[in-house]
Design a protein around this nucleic acid. Sequence first.
DNA 1: CGGCGGCTTGAGGTTGGTCAAGGCATGTGG
DNA 2: CCACATGCCTTGACCAACCTCAAGCCGCCG
Lengths: 259, 259
Amino acid sequence: MSPLLAATTVVNVTKNRAIEDHPFVVKLSAHAPLDRDDLKALARVLKSRLSVKKGKDILVQGYEHNGIDIIESGFAIRYGLLHKGGRQIVNTLLPGDIVGFPASFYDRSIFSVMALTKMTLHSISFDAFVGLCKERPSIAIALIWFAAREASIYAYHLIDAGRRSPLERIAHFILEMHVRLKAVGCATENAFAMPLSQESIGDAVGLSAPHVNRMLSELKGEGLIAMEGHEIKILDRAALQIMAEFDPSYLVRTSSSRR
Amino acid sequence: MSPLLAATTVVNVTKNRAIEDHPFVVKLSAHAPLDRDDLKALARVLKSRLSVKKGKDILVQGYEHNGIDIIESGFAIRYGLLHKGGRQIVNTLLPGDIVGFPASFYDRSIFSVMALTKMTLHSISFDAFVGLCKERPSIAIALIWFAAREASIYAYHLIDAGRRSPLERIAHFILEMHVRLKAVGCATENAFAMPLSQESIGDAVGLSAPHVNRMLSELKGEGLIAMEGHEIKILDRAALQIMAEFDPSYLVRTSSSRR
DNA sequence: CGGCGGCTTGAGGTTGGTCAAGGCATGTGG
DNA sequence: CCACATGCCTTGACCAACCTCAAGCCGCCG
């Protein structure tokens, strides 16, 4: 693990933080107002904690599962496997994300999830999950908005893969990654440690690994980004955003989602 | 409009049907058990009805909106526009689908939605929507599962666009379209009227219109499908499913989603 | 120190986009 | 009722883009 990755991870491993600082609770609160009782219910559900090693499959496509997992710290990828050996990464998972959404909302998981770093998770059974939603409708409503945000991210990835040029896809991927990492305190104003290898980036945006490399080189050559190991610096955000038609509003809470 | 399209539409325009036969209610019930009071609350919300002409934009990317719309009858597409004139269709909308998911769960709509046929909709304000979820947690829970299903569809479209061959994408698109149309009574066992033009199919799967035509011809040549105007007949479902790695389980309710 | 995973670069070949022209069906207005 | 316009499907030729394969290299970890 690179030094920067290690450093950013540590930020999220703090034990015994206040419940309202938990990345999952922060994310939910952005979507609907949660009162004291909501927080208490969440604290109960997020009590237990479990650790996962880097590289481990948390969820395997086609297999049964007992509930959902919420990420406290660490990064993962959610992906589908193709018979002929290919792989499509549909999303990267950061602290506060739900490992089992939407894969576990089926009898058998429809996607796999693999840990990119050491992770800590909270495991929740479906019964506990449904109970929580029944008891605290505000949380259920926040989860609907959370799901809408997740679906939007997929839709934007689809737009990238379907209709954007390789260079635009890479630019978009970098900008989205940065906004999301910054939101959970894992990036500075203009730099972050890319958790994915170039081959994985290819699997996320629908390109071959060599072509990802060429596109990154081109962005470097144009002076839009700088790279040093896994660390990416954004040098000209305005130009990148125009190139990728990137508007971060699909990633962030908005006032109408705070009823 | 083709005769078959007209015929299938009529099925869903029946007025004054029982609330539990409404396609939206059917869809929700598949995800969570709804009791008599849940149905009553839904009936109240689905009371008003509004008609939309073929070709009209129901929702426009970047604009404000007042709530969400639920489709009673007719078809639509949800899409994103690119600055240089391109378009990516992220989903097709059928009876029972929510026009504004996830586009309207933001200050300004993040996608556009256009009617492919004459449609009838139920308009619901966000206040009414949130009130419904607060009052009837079972409905909120069903909506979370509904959102998970929607997100899964996007993820599968992403897998198509990112990592499957043109022929596989078209095969997958046809099979998904058929399963979804059949679920709302708009397809027979092995045939349906394709609501999209070949250009639109290209915008959905990330291909050019001429190439969509070539791929359809190839499927015809291999004896997997037959086409007559807009009507598509599936001649060899097994071969199509293998080609597309299609497993309809991501589209349908499963037992674990019926708590 | 040795091995391995991932990055980098190059050459060559196929795929699928672009452009263009023609055909067919539908609908419309004279 | 016919002429025309329009939109969509169909086909072909050409060419750029991006994949595949391959080899070398670097840095990290065991």
